[in-house]
Every structure is written in structure tokens, then in C-alpha cells.
């Protein structure tokens, strides 16, 4: 484990880097950085479901869609973003509860199938209910949040606005994971049978984890609405859910900083591998499979392993060394 002091120093450095990164950059770079933050929020939520509660959800993009469309419709109707977004989060939370309840009644990987089908359903509703969602033409012209003295119409202020939201979301997640209730998650992740025998209602905890994770998806969606100012059903398909899932896995499921790293890799890798043209996804899929064979705990896990090799002072419990308990 990293010593506490050094960890905070590292976080402060990363935050400083995040503040400095977009300065003097072209607006395209600022856009890429902003979408990194947005997907980091979505991945953070999914990490709670996958990394801490051990359930696969393939519907994170559809929760982004619900968040995006609710925010878009309300802001287009003249509501402020700061009022519309909590409502969007609430909608995602409730839908998460309703969807997770039947799926988590049964043991096995049923949530994966239910969420996969749900993502298809959300896509169909968005495409078919033209009176509400604009069909495949989508919605456009949503205003960006205006915070009085600080308007976010330009790319750079919007980036800082997104960064602030990300920090708040990350602190909330930190609180959730560290709370007694979050410790129940860790108990669940490390030994579900013991957790249950100690009186934890594992099913309820898993359901709540999924619903909160979904609300994080909604928050990311609310930010997408203002970032792109144009939303259409095709941006929230099953393929995007899979993309977010792989962000969590690549970064390191069950580790707090994994989603940031994973979403960074998934957002930036296409830019780096641009010369490979259409073969980018093929290369990416092969890399993911190879990583799952040799280092299923993700990039964070690889980093931790390297560190253990060079500075192996403290003894890590053997059953904790896996980090991501993708069992």
C-alpha cells in the first residue's frame, strides 16, 4: 500500500496537472480532455458495480443516455443545469433500482444479460419516440450551464467546470467507499459468504451499488449534453457500454484510480493509434485479451506489481494482492 502522505501528494500533483493540461491548447485537445473527465465519471460509477460489487453491467451508456436526455429536455425547457442534473441523477438511480431488482434476485451473471437487453430497449425508445426525443435526429442547442460570474460557453471554462464536477464526484465516491457501508462492499468483494454470514444483506448492497453506479452514468450523460450540445441515440448504443466496461477493466476494476487511468487510455489510444486507421479496434481488442491473460488486475495492478518488485518493503496480504477481485 502506498503511504498515505505520498498518496495525497500524488493526487495533488495529478490535480495540478489536470488544471494545467488544457492551458494554451487548441480547442480540440480541450474537448478530448473534457471527454476524458466525462467518461472517467461514467467509469467510476461502473467501477462501483463491477469492481466493488462484482456484477457486470452493460447498460452504462444507456444510463448516460437517460441522464443526457433528461438534462437536455429540462434545460431546453428553460430549467437551469444545476436543477436539471440532480433530477436526471435521481431518474437514473430509480431506473437502476427497478432494473437491478429482478436481475439480482437470481445468482449468476443475469445482470449482464438484463442490462444488455435494457441498453437495446433504451436505444429503441430514443429512436422511436420522436415526439419526445427527436428520434434519430436527436436534440441540439442545449445551453451550457451559466453560473453567474462564471459562464461555461467557451471550451476552457467548461473544462474547468467539468473538472470541478469530477472532483466532487470522486470525493463522493471516496466517501462511499470509505463509509461503513462502503466497507460492506469490500467485505462483499473479498468474501461474499463470510459477508453474508456476518449479517450483510449482500443482495441489497449489490443493488444499491448498481443504482449508485447508474446515477454516476447519468451525471456523465448530463455533462455530455452540455459538452457536445447535440445528442442522438447512436451515441449511447451497446458498443459504448462495452467501451466503458473495458475502461474499468483496463484501468483496474476495484481500484479507486483505475477508472481515470482506463478512460484516459481508451480516449487517448485512438489518437495515438490513428495511423493504424480501421485496425485500431482490432489492436485494442487483442491488447485487452492479452492483458486479461497476463494481468487481469489491470494497469493499476501492473503498476503495483512493478512497485512491489522494486520497493518491496511492506508485506501485502496474499489475498489482497489481486486488487481487482474479478472472481
Amino acid at each position: 500500500m502506498m503511504a498515505g502522505k505520498w498518496r495525497w501528494l500524488l493526487v495533488a500533483l495529478l490535480l495540478a496537472a489536470a488544471v494545467a493540461a488544457p492551458l494554451g491548447q487548441k480547442s480540440y485537445i480541450v474537448y478530448v480532455l473534457t471527454s476524458w473527465l466525462v467518461f472517467a465519471i461514467a467509469a467510476m460509477g461502473l467501477n462501483l458495480t463491477l469492481g466493488y460489487a462484482g456484477q457486470i453491467s452493460l447498460a452504462q451508456a444507456s444510463f448516460m443516455a437517460i441522464g443526457a436526455y433528461v438534462t437536455a429536455l429540462l434545460t431546453l425547457a428553460g430549467w437551469h443545469w444545476l436543477i436539471a442534473t440532480p433530477l436526471a441523477l435521481l431518474a437514473c438511480f430509480v431506473v437502476g433500482l427497478l432494473l437491478g431488482y429482478p436481475a439480482l434476485r437470481v445468482k449468476g451473471h443475469f445482470l449482464a444479460f438484463v442490462t444488455l437487453a435494457f441498453n437495446t430497449l433504451v436505444f429503441l425508445v430514443l429512436r422511436n419516440e420522436e415526439w419526445l426525443t427527436g428520434g434519430s435526429y436527436g436534440l441540439s442547442g442545449m445551453p451550457r450551464p451559466d453560473l453567474g460570474l462564471f459562464t461555461t460557453m467557451r471550451p476552457l471554462p467548461f473544462y474547468y467546470f467539468t473538472l470541478a464536477v469530477t472532483v466532487i464526484a470522486a470525493l463522493a465516491m471516496w466517501g462511499i467507499v470509505r463509509s461503513p457501508w462502503g466497507r460492506a462492499f469490500r467485505a462483499l468483494r473479498e468474501n461474499p459468504i463470510r459477508a453474508e454470514s456476518l449479517g450483510l444483506d449482500t443482495r441489497r448492497i449489490t443493488l444499491l451499488a448498481f443504482a449508485i453506479g447508474s446515477a454516476y452514468g447519468g451525471l456523465a450523460g448530463a455533462l455530455v449534453t452540455s459538452l457536445v450540445q447535440f445528442i442522438e441515440p447512436a451515441s449511447f448504443g451497446v458498443g459504448h457500454s462495452l467501451r466503458i466496461l473495458l475502461m474499468v477493466v483496463v484501468g483496474g476494476a476495484g481500484s479507486f484510480f483505475g477508472p481515470f487511468l482506463g478512460s484516459g487510455v481508451v480516449i487517448l489510444l485512438p489518437e495515438v493509434l490513428r495511423f493504424t486507421e480501421g485496425y485500431y479496434l482490432i489492436i485494442y481488442a487483442v491488447l485487452v485479451i492479452v492483458m486479461l491473460i497476463y494481468a487481469p488486475e489491470g494497469l493499476i495492478g501492473i503498476g503495483a506489481r512493478l512497485k512491489m518488485k522494486f520497493f518491496s518493503r511492506s508485506q501485502v496480504r496474499a489475498d489482497m494482492s489481486q486488487g481487482a477481485s474479478l472472481k
Binding site: I56, A112, L242, L246, Y279, L281, A285, V288, P296, L326
Partner: peptide, 30 residues
């Protein structure tokens, strides 16, 4: 795929098959 990954757990293998799905789809497409 299955033999090396199964010891890491069922969820890891599920995710690997999802990556495999992308791989097969994109390979055929390209």
C-alpha cells in the same frame, strides 16, 4: 482464451469474450 483466463475468475473470462466479440467483428469488417 478460456484455459489461460478461467483461473482468473468467471467475470474476467466474460469480459475477455466481450473483447473477443469486438475482435471478430472488426476483423471481419476490416
Amino acid at each position: 482464451i478460456v484455459e489461460p483466463i478461467l483461473p482468473h475468475g468467471g467475470i474476467t473470462l466474460i469480459i475477455a469474450t466481450m473483447a473477443l466479440a469486438i475482435l471478430l467483428k472488426e476483423t471481419v469488417k476490416e
